[in-house]
Write a protein that binds this DNA or RNA. Structure first.
Length: 180
DNA sequence: CCCTAGCGGTGCT
DNA sequence: AGCACCGCTAGGG
């Protein structure tokens, strides 16, 4: 898998972006501490983070900058102005349709799993939509956190509900603890 | 709140 | 083909 892992430091910790030849292919939440922690030795930049020694895509530096800015904006509670090209070639056809629908949810708005299901023409596949959301390789920028359960329930989140709550709060969205 | 039945996509056997 | 997962949902206590 020709891809480059690139750490992206934010106020919420260091994310890891994965870039393929065609764009941002993955984004991982900070591993342990939400608060960036200084290691004993100063962390090496991205020098050794390419497990496959793939040739460096020429636009990578720009993609990284765009990604870092978009992520910073998202975490600061602002709608990202520009996203890097997204490489969503990995998923199934169904998952890609779900992800495309997620990408269309405006900043500061939410949908339910059922609404996404209906939007992609599979009105009874709400549960499968939830599963596909969990497979979203680029959380935050592909806003799977804006998908809630029916009646405003929080629903689930692969990276932990704490993140979902936090991301929703950044967009001034009701934490929706109301269990109907 | 709980429980149940029904649902669809995915991956493993 | 079968089956066991699941970020679901509607309906009934």
């Amino acid at each position: 898998m020709n891809s480059h892992l690139v750490p992206i430091a934010t106020t919420e910790g260091t994310f890891t972006a994965r870039f393929s030849a065609t764009g941002l292919a993955g984004l991982e939440f900070p591993k342990a501490a939400p608060i960036p922690r200084r290691a004993h030795r100063s962390p090496q930049p991205d020098a050794n983070l390419n497990p496959h020694r793939a040739p460096l895509p020429a636009p990578l530096a720009r993609w990284r900058a765009v990604t870092a800015r978009a992520l910073a904006e998202a975490l600061a509670g602002k709608a990202p102005q520009e996203l890097p090209p997204l490489d969503l070639s990995v998923g199934t056809a169904f998952e890609r349709r779900v992800w495309a629908a997620l990408a269309g949810i405006p900043w500061g708005r939410t949908r339910t799993y059922g609404q996404i299901a209906a939007a992609i023409g599979r009105p009874r596949a709400a549960r499968a939509v939830g599963r596909a959301c969990g497979a979203n390789p680029i959380p935050v920028l592909i806003p799977c956190h804006r998908v809630l359960g029916a009646g405003g329930r929080l629903g689930g989140f692969s990276a932990g509900l704490e993140w979902k709550r936090r991301l929703l709060a950044r967009e001034k969205l009701p934490a929706a603890p109301a269990k109907m």
